[in-house]
């Protein structure tokens, strides 16, 4: 029993990091119907920002979360202005954005690999190899801290969307774009800002990922499908859904890893992707998109 609890807690800590990794992806899809396959490489970009800040000036990756977020958000604004603004953010070209962002992911991957090579890296602050015990439960501090920071950021995002004026405008735009415009919401600005926030979330997740997983530019290919399975289970465009999807799959994959074989734990994500798409394509909390 204790061992099950142990596995579930580790799964949950990691699940919140996954949730942060996909929150920006689902936000951007919700507002603009852009399926951003470049999201994982943006996370890696954020990880590199934290990595180099740690190596060069010894800045703790948790402290560099906001910096990684700002750098990637700014990159997002540039990408949005260059690539998305004209057609892709009009909520009518979801299929096209898959190809568009796939190409974009390849380009960013190539640029990162050119400069930093595909060698495995990880930031190693002092707590990265530490662990704490609560009774008999053991929690690696890296996962504990990254989980806590993720919860904080996701809570802040949820409060922003629920209560702030601009957050309400973002939700209104994702639910009914024309109506939002007709009650006076500057939809173009909402799109730009949501895209920047979504990318900023990727950057902040990157900072945490940099000391939880080892990373290298091409690692993002493996994350694309995993992250898609999380948002598809929760329902594309729903932040609550993304969090719940991430927690469920993370815990299940931890259980499979502990009681069956780590080799099969990734299979959980892909199996979930298949099953959800077959039987409930809109996911747990999503709405059907026509």
């Amino acid at each position: 029993m204790m061992q099950v609890l142990q596995v579930v807690i580790l799964g949950l800590a990691l699940g919140f990091v996954y949730a942060l990794m996909v929150s920006g992806l689902t936000l951007i899809f919700g507002v603009m119907r852009i399926v951003n396959l470049a999201h994982p490489i943006l996370i890696i970009t954020g990880a590199f920002v934290s990595y180099w800040l740690f190596i060069l000036i010894g800045l703790d990756p948790i402290l560099s979360v906001p910096l990684a977020a700002i750098v990637v958000a700014f990159l997002g604004i540039v990408l949005y202005k260059l690539v998305f603004e004209k057609d892709a953010a009009k909520q009518t070209y979801s299929e096209m954005t898959v190809l568009l962002t796939f190409g974009m992911a390849m380009v960013i991957d190539g640029i990162l690999a050119f400069f930093f090579h595909n060698t495995q890296r990880i930031t190693s602050p002092s707590y990265a190899t530490d662990a704490i015990f609560i009774g008999e439960i053991f929690i690696p501090t890296a996962q504990l801290y990254s989980g806590l920071v993720s919860v904080t950021i996701i809570t802040a995002l949820a409060l922003f969307l629920k209560y702030s004026n601009f957050g309400v405008a973002i939700r209104a735009t994702s639910q009914n774009r024309t109506s939002a415009e007709l009650v006076g919401v500057n939809v173009k600005l909402v799109c730009l800002v949501s895209f920047a926030i979504g990318c900023g979330l990727a950057g902040s997740a990157g900072a945490l990922v940099s000391f939880v997983f080892s990373f290298f530019p091409s690692r993002h290919w493996e994350w694309i499908a995993i992250m898609m399975s999380l948002v598809v289970l929760g329902g594309m465009g729903s932040i609550t859904g993304a969090v719940i999807g991430a927690l469920i799959l993370s815990v299940v994959s931890s259980l499979v890893s502990a009681y069956y074989s780590p080799a099969w734990s990734t299979m959980v994500f892909f199996l979930a992707l298949f099953v959800v798409l077959l039987f409930r394509p809109q996911g747990l909390f999503g709405v059907r998109v026509d």
Binding site: R171, Q175, N176, T178
Partner: peptide, 8 residues
């Protein structure tokens, strides 16, 4: 078309 925000 009915111009409400259904999830609000």
């Amino acid at each position: 078309e009915r111009a409400i925000f259904p999830n609000m």
